[in-house]
Design a protein around this nucleic acid. Structure first.
Lengths: 108, 108
DNA sequence: TTTGACTTGTCAATATTGTACAAGTGTAAA
DNA sequence: TTTACACTTGTACAATATTGACAAGTCAAA
């Protein structure tokens, strides 16, 4: 199912039968702010991804994927960039990996 | 050619035969900071993309693509996310577009 | 009409980022 | 040499953005 990150949290919170206050407490934040996050009025702090994955018992890799794809999608959407940008991004990830591998060799 | 955004600026600056100081002046910034940007020690401020595109006489769409793909690539690389994330991101862009189209209808 | 879940606005505190400037390296021409 | 120029790097300070906290609200069910 396709959702924004806020919708994703809300869906999983509902599945666990947690209130905003309960989930907020589990991840150490104010329930009013969590409400804003679920409604897309505020962004979720990357540092709390791990604790969110534990509170909702979701695989951290899945949560990260939801989180970052949401981030990228919003940036793309608001900057009116072609989605070709994502293709380029994938190539650049490989370029970065290769580059740091080379640098690794040099230091030895 | 595949490059980081810093390398991309440097390449085009060289093609135009501009010094750091000259290009920095054109886009209203300190040459020391531009040097850091070209060397990947600092990020380029999105607000200056337009003026950069004018200074280097490059299509703004191309520059935006280079800029955002670089941003995404670094995030992905440092967060160790699967590149599937980018596929999801593309779907989410469409989801956002569709969502705002619906909201648009409602307001009328 | 009370309670609990949620939403929204505001603002100080905090964190992040940008800017400017000083002081450096390296190189090449005078 | 030494002067000049392109570039790099470190580090404060300023400007911005994000976060946390709380008050005050809506709404629905009991």
């Amino acid at each position: 199912m396709l959702t924004t990150f806020g919708e994703y949290i809300r869906k999983h919170r509902a599945e666990k039968g947690l209130t905003l206050t309960q989930l907020a407490a589990k991840i150490g934040m104010d329930s009013a702010n969590l409400s804003k996050i679920e409604n897309g009025r505020r962004s979720f702090d990357e540092k709390r991804l791990k604790s969110l994955s534990q509170a909702l018992e979701i695989d951290i890799e899945e949560i990260k994927m939801e989180y970052f794809s949401d981030l990228f999608a919003h940036k793309l959407y608001h900057s009116n960039c072609s989605s070709e940008t994502l293709v380029l991004a994938e190539k650049k990830v490989k370029y970065l990996a290769q580059k740091s591998a080379k640098q690794g060799k040099i230091t030895f």
